[in-house]
Design a protein around this nucleic acid. Structure first.
Length: 507
RNA sequence: GGAGCCAUAGCCAAGUGGUAAGGCAGUGGUCUGCAAAACCACCAUUCCCCGGUUCAAAUCCGGGUGGCUCCUCCA
């Protein structure tokens, strides 16, 4: 068992890169704020999930044993509201969207969490924690509600940089006579008619928004654990309140040892919002460009940077939306095609003549895994890792094309090694997990569909061109090539025969 | 009003003190019946602007300008 490589990561609390020193050497406990399932997941949910999945996969790649907990907030105002509209049971509604969420995340190669706790099944630790906070003088009950008294926690604001008095000065904090101070927040809310409720020492009610994460980390990871993640938008108030709750209950220095936040996903520089009409569902985008292209696009950017989606809506003469195009994602898909074509070439070569057995490889083969380890250990730098994948693929193509002056078995071993490493590093990023033929066929189908190509017609033209070439009627063959090109079909003559691909440069 | 982020080539994007990764597009070339794919070469004396610190700054500090986010249970 090798010792896991030391990892440096940017800690949002310390506001600098620090070395990750897990509580238990070699093991990392990780908690990520999951969704509140009240509607279908959009692509922003996927980005956040992918960022933390990248961190998880990177740690595994580097040799850590990771315990990954991602909660489901299945008791919440938004769920209750959505359920009321259709007369559904709120828990049934959230169960439905939770299942859908997990299907969507799986599309983007997000690994299922080791533990996926629900608020509805963690009422007991939530009540216990709330009682503890009352005992310790951090919280007070009022008319069946329980509030956290922010001024009892001196460290309040250390994560977000918010100052309590500034918050009070702001006009946007809830005003409620039952609260002692405007910044105090609810740990427990008294039941209202028609809402889900559980018994508690303060009467029937349900948990407030922030308490569940403090309770669930406690239940599954203990009073102190390693990484806590979430979207940047959760820094305040959610994570600030979690700290107040957990440290308030268990003492300073408990709770998350490192905080990690991912950047936001914007559309054309604008925040995603219903009113902008730029909220896209996971399925919609996956269908348009392929889910793996989305993941590849994600890992081509650093998780802490904001990421931008370009898109334009295609309309017909009547002004109706006929399609949505995502140029950046399509470019990512094109790049992904390069990797899969390269893998396919290597696979075919190795399948035909073997992998060369044990022995030396060309030295440049060593670079990919070495670079990936270094880059991922430095704040999970996926873009640099992607660049290393590119270098390795280039080397493979070079070996396949020529490989002169290299012993045959060295060449075979090197190529087999590159294919293996491409997949291993790809796994750390959540890409290159498909069989090349499967990916390439799906991509071609997608492009055929986008261009509205008649495949039978394409086949007919290809056959006509093949006949012309067999007769060495070059002018005729080129004429047919031109016809195919006009349709958007590129013809690829190879020693193994003629293949074709759909041009993606336009249309 | 308070807190914070970002600004790198035509485009996307790494790099947070040591002399600008990578990709797309573009140009030339090898290969090819012609192409495509693949590969090779070229492609930012410079990192929004102005000052400062330093032997050394895209990186640190101060001041601008432009864009964005949080303080509204929005990932």
């Amino acid at each position: 068992m090798t010792t896991p490589a030391p990892v440096r990561l940017y800690d949002s609390l310390r506001k600098q890169k620090v070395e990750l020193q897990p509580l238990v050497p070699g093991k990392v406990s990780m908690y990520v704020c999951g969704p509140t399932p009240y509607a279908a997941a959009h692509i922003g949910h996927a980005y956040s999930a992918c960022c933390f999945d990248l961190i998880r996969r990177s740690l595994i790649f580097l040799g850590y044993d990771v315990k990954y907990v991602r909660n489901i907030t299945d008791v919440d105002d938004k769920i209750i509201k959505a359920a009321a509209k259709t007369g559904q049971d709120p828990l049934a509604l959230s169960r439905h969207f939770t299942a859908e969420y997990n299907v969507d995340m799986a599309r983007f190669s997000v690994m299922p969490p080791d533990v996926e706790p629900l608020v509805s099944t963690h009422i007991e630790p939530i009540v216990k924690l709330t009682e503890k906070l009352i005992e310790r003088g951090k919280a007070y009950a009022a008319d069946g509600d329980v509030y956290y008294e922010v001024k009892t926690f001196p460290g309040y604001g250390k994560l977000s940089g918010q100052a309590v008095d500034e918050l009070e000065a702001g006009a946007r904090v809830d005003v409620d006579e039952r609260k002692r101070a405007p910044a105090d927040f609810a740990l427990w809310k008294a039941a209202k008619p028609g809402e889900p409720a559980w018994p508690s020492p303060w009467g029937a009610g349900r948990p407030g928004w922030h308490i569940e994460c403090s309770a669930m980390t406690w239940a599954h990871l203990g009073e102190t654990f390693d990484l806590h993640g979430g979207g940047k938008d959760l820094v305040f108030p959610h994570h600030e309140n979690e700290i107040a709750q957990s440290e308030g209950a268990f003492g300073d220095g408990t709770f998350a040892r490192y905080w990690v936040h991912n950047g936001f996903l914007n559309f054309e520089g604008e925040k995603m919002s219903r009113s902008e009409g730029n909220v896209f569902g996971c399925g919609e985008i996956a269908a348009a460009v392929g889910a793996e292209a989305v993941r590849f696009y994600f890992v081509s950017h650093h998780y802490r940077s904001p990421i931008d989606f370009e898109f334009h809506v295609v309309k017909n003469a009547a002004g109706e939306r006929t399609a949505i195009r995502f140029p950046g994602l399509e470019a990512a898909d094109r790049r992904l095609e390069y990797f899969y074509v390269t893998l396919q070439r290597i696979d075919a070569f190795v399948a035909q003549g073997g992998d060369g057995g044990d022995g030396p490889v060309v030295p440049e083969c060593e670079a990919l895994v070495a670079t990936a380890r270094e880059a991922l250990a430095d704040d999970f730098n996926a873009p640099v890792t992607v660049a290393a994948l590119g270098e390795a693929a280039k080397l493979a193509n070079k070996l396949l094309d020529e490989g002169k002056g290299i012993a045959k078995d060295v060449k075979r071993r090197s190529l087999a090694r590159i294919a293996r490493d491409l997949r291993a590093v790809g796994k750390a990023l959540g890409v290159l997990h498909q069989a090349p033929a499967v990916y390439l066929a799906a991509r071609r189908d997608r492009l055929v569909e986008r261009r509205g190509l008649d495949v039978a017609e394409v086949q007919r033209l290809l056959a006509a061109r093949a006949a012309a070439r067999a007769a060495k009627e070059w002018a005729r063959a080129d004429e047919v090539r031109g016809q195919l090109a006009a349709l958007g079909v590129e013809v690829l003559d190879t020693p193994q025969g003629t293949d074709w691909r759909v041009a993606d440069s336009d249309a």
